[in-house]
């Protein structure tokens, strides 16, 4: 049994919960998020050479960066950073969160998701900025939890990164 703890990070209402819901059929109710502040799901991902169980931690309430519980990330091997492509501020939020996690636990593999790609008319992130981030060697995906576009790809990529 090979398992990895993965944390969903990102600002308020960017689509973290929706992405997890799209990727795995959940057994826990989403009320856990508001009560315990975290919801956990599992997805077995088959890679060419092995199978890994991703244990996905979806955290609630990052509207206020001060209230973010870094302790939930302890022991994680990978991050899913989620940005809402229709709100530029959510990119800063995601990057800040990553910085705080790295300061506490050191660098770890991540994928960066620009979500809600189906809302092309309200899209505010310039392609140039995305290219720039890719240039740094980051794994960047344009996803839609609504249509499912690139969701599996992103998680699959992260799975192979954390098992390297």
């Amino acid at each position: 049994m090979l398992q990895k703890k993965i944390c969903m990070l990102g600002g308020f209402s960017v689509g973290k919960t929706s992405l997890v819901r799209r990727f795995v059929k959940s057994i826990f109710s989403e009320t856990y998020l508001t009560t315990v502040g975290v919801k956990i799901d599992k997805k077995s991902v088959a890679l060419p050479d092995k199978t890994v169980d991703l244990i996905l931690w979806d955290l609630a309430g990052e509207d206020d960066i001060g209230s973010f519980r870094v302790s939930h990330v302890r022991g994680a091997t990978g991050l899913v950073l989620v940005v809402d492509g229709t709100r530029a501020a959510t990119l800063t939020a995601a990057l800040t969160l990553r910085e705080r996690v790295e300061a506490e636990f050191g660098a770890m593999p991540f994928v960066l998701l620009f979500n809600k790609s189906d809302l092309a008319d309200r899209w505010v992130i310039p392609d140039r900025e995305i290219d720039e981030l890719r240039q740094r060697g980051w794994q960047v995906y344009l996803t839609s939890a609504l249509s499912g576009e690139h969701v599996d790809d992103a998680f699959l990529k992260l799975a192979s990164m954390v098992t390297k």
């Binding site: 049994m1 398992q3 703890k5 057994i27 315990v36 502040g37 244990i55 091997t77």
Partner: peptide, 27 residues
Amino acid sequence: SGLLIAHVAADNATSEDPQLISSMLSA
């Protein structure tokens, strides 16, 4: 990490996915 290292159940005892339970408990 809250990850499950091992799980043993008694005969006839059922539960949800032990891996999830494990993480949830630590959360």
